[in-house]
Write a protein that binds this DNA or RNA. Structure first.
Lengths: 138, 138
DNA sequence: GGTCATTTGTACGTATGTATT
DNA sequence: GAATACATACGTACAAATGAC
């Protein structure tokens, strides 16, 4: 069984670890639905709050996406487009602001890349869709 | 006042927006403590769960750090060390795994930069301490 | 369009555990 | 030990989104 009520590890962490293993091992594939919250409360004998904390943890790790009124699903990794970091440019990784997340349509647990070019102009790119490269010279 | 119980906006979002404004405007400086949870329940007439959801939201945005038994504090932005992206290397931004977060000592809401060099070797760097650069030639 | 069941979201109360001072 | 503060976890209730019909 996955859940041990007498363990020192919090229930929500045990449950998150259970699904994290399933996701990373491929038993739960991208796009697959997690059981509904009420289903999990019955299945594992855990209260709804602990269930929600577990799913929230997986969301914050970028493993799961939740759609209200619908369910929680394993995030399918988008194919990344490679972007060349121009000479004189720099890049940092950070979490998006609320408006950035909304504008870019980002799921929870997805950072952004903030690019600053030589002129000081900045651009914010979705962290799950971009790979930053510096090509080898000719 | 900050909180409107009749608003359509959830209480926890109103409260998060209130502190987010204070942080981004500089009224709450890095290192400053947020009021304790019990203090906020009294101050704003909100239940503890809504309070915790608000603080959790700020944590996930990388604005706040919470220390158990101590309190929640405005995260002070570390000075970033600039790292040059080598030719033939690439970089992606993503959230850390639990072990990475532990090993790197990262707060919640802090992504990582995963660097892959020309040989395919990968390195994981703390996203809040690193700025990736590509210098102008000559 | 409207209704209904399902599912997640918000929010309250309560209790207990654990970390820090 | 005591006081304070955050963490975990249960129960309850209603709101809001979604999809099926």
């Amino acid at each position: 069984m996955a859940i041990d009520h007498r363990s020192h590890t919090p229930l929500y962490m045990q449950l998150a670890a259970f699904f994290r293993n399933q996701i990373e091992s491929g038993q739960l594939r991208p796009g697959s639905a997690l059981p509904s919250e009420t289903r999990m409360t019955q299945e594992y004998g855990i209260g709804r709050e602990a269930i929600r904390m577990a799913v929230s943890l997986l969301r914050s790790e970028g493993l799961v996406r939740t759609q209200r009124g619908h369910g929680s699903y394993v995030r399918d990794s988008v194919k990344r487009s490679t972007i060349e970091l121009a000479a004189g440019s720099s890049a940092i990784a950070r979490m998006p602001t609320r408006t950035e997340r909304h504008n870019l349509g980002l799921d929870e647990g997805v950072p952004v890349l903030e690019i600053r070019d030589a002129e000081g102009e900045t651009e914010v790119l979705p962290g799950d869709e971009v790979e930053l490269t510096r090509p080898t010279k000719g």
